[in-house]
Amino acid sequence: MNTLSYGLLSLLSFAPLSGYDLTQKIKPLWQAGHSQIYPLLASMEQQGYISYKLIEQTDKPDKKEYTITEAGLAQLRQWVEMPAEHPVLRDELHFKLYSLWLSEPQKAKELLYQRMEFCQSELDRYNEMLGGNETLREERGESHEPKATTFGRYMLIRKRIMDMESSLQFCKYALEELEI
């Protein structure tokens, strides 16, 4: 199984989801499209890691709602405790920064302002998720209990908030450097 498979199992460990719901929920975490997700779902179903029930719909085609099985939970539990691979950095901005000397100063500033707008938008969205999610706050409580089912989601949202704050800080630094 690949990392995306484990990501899908992770999402299913929280609640049953359709293939479409999985593609939407995985977007903030991992870049993957329908063409990758649906074959993995079929493979994981054949391996016994997930099962599905067919949901009949009158106005749309029927859909499959996937659920993680005990075998899937065991597989996920085993994977979670293994060391993570080194992070893969794939940010187009890195190459643009490397070649910034070719850019007009105003265009370089616009590039950084655009990234700042994106980061601020994401920061607002993640802060809203954290502040507006009663279930997340109630289950997490003040004890930061790692066994709560939402603890991992809480930690991931906090990481994304820190990432966006760091990116904003870098953009401000870079804009100051461009003024020198």
Rank of each mutant, 00 (worst) to 15 (best):
G7V: 06
M162C: 07
R153S: 08
Q75F: 06
T135C: 08
L168C: 05
G72D: 03
L11F: 10
M162E: 14
S35Q: 14
L41P: 01
L11K: 02
E70W: 00
T149D: 03
K107I: 08
M164N: 11
D124H: 10
L12H: 01
R137I: 06
T3S: 13
D62W: 00
D21N: 07
K53D: 12
M1C: 00
I26L: 05
A148E: 05
S121K: 15
N133A: 08
H144R: 13
E56F: 03
E138Q: 13
Y6K: 12
W101D: 14
E92G: 02
T23Y: 03
K27W: 02
Y38E: 03
T69D: 04
I37F: 07
E165K: 09
R160N: 12
S167I: 08
D124C: 01
K109T: 01
R160P: 00
D21M: 08
E85Y: 05
Q57R: 15
E45T: 09
Y38Q: 08
L76G: 03
P39H: 07
T149G: 00
M155L: 15
A174F: 14
I26S: 02
L136D: 03
Q106Y: 06
E45Q: 07
R90P: 00
E56S: 10
G19R: 01
C171N: 07
S10F: 14
L76H: 06
F170S: 11
G48T: 05
A15V: 09
E122V: 04
P87I: 12
T23D: 02
Y113R: 12
E176N: 10
S167N: 09
P146N: 04
A32S: 09
S18G: 12
